[in-house]
Design a protein around this nucleic acid. Structure first.
Length: 157
DNA sequence: GCCAACGTTGGC
DNA sequence: GCCAACGTTGGC
């Protein structure tokens, strides 16, 4: 019996790596996450096939731009071992890596961005960590919230 | 570019 | 283990 897929939201700065970049690349390692809670979700709970709302932060307006898919098992973020990287972590080691990531793959770009304002105003989306946990860049999403947001992105209001 | 929110670090 | 200082996120 196969595991049920889970749903997630991952934030990316729109001017750094937007959904168009993911579409071009096909797959990308979700590197540079240096928050323990976000790491724990990737390390302990994400598995290939899980679906991800792709959120543009630092955008005007910010919002969900499309859907991605978890495309690998969790593995150590290579940048933590690279002294030249801004994500280098001298306290981490190959034997005991501190930062774990997954690859994500492009799934779909919405015809229309679902803006943060709209999520904030939707009566069924009030409980989303996106609204209550401002700084968490990787977070779980309830199946119903995922469905609502995808529908908004695919068909408009 | 500003700055509030909030997670992390480090001295004690 | 507390908590002030610090650094970063991310909306505006």
């Amino acid at each position: 019996m196969s595991r049920k897929i889970q749903h997630w939201l991952m934030k990316s700065e729109a001017d750094v790596y937007a959904i168009d970049d993911l579409e071009r690349d096909g797959t990308t390692p979700w590197d540079g996450i240096r928050n323990y809670e976000a790491r724990n979700f990737m390390r302990d709970r994400m598995r290939p096939g899980d679906l991800v709302l792709y959120y543009h932060s630092n955008a005007r307006p910010p919002g969900v731009a499309g859907v991605a898919r978890v495309a690998s098992e969790p593995y150590p973020d290579p940048l933590q071992f690279d002294p030249g990287s801004r994500y280098h972590d001298p306290k981490s080691s190959e034997e005991e890596p501190r930062w774990i990531l997954v690859d994500v793959a492009f799934e779909e770009k919405f015809p229309r961005l679902v803006p943060l304002d709209e999520i904030r105003e939707h009566p069924k989306l009030q409980e989303m960590p996106l609204l209550t946990r401002k700084r968490l860049s990787v977070q779980p999403v309830e199946p119903e919230a995922f469905r609502i947001i995808r529908k908004l992105g695919q068909r408009g209001g």
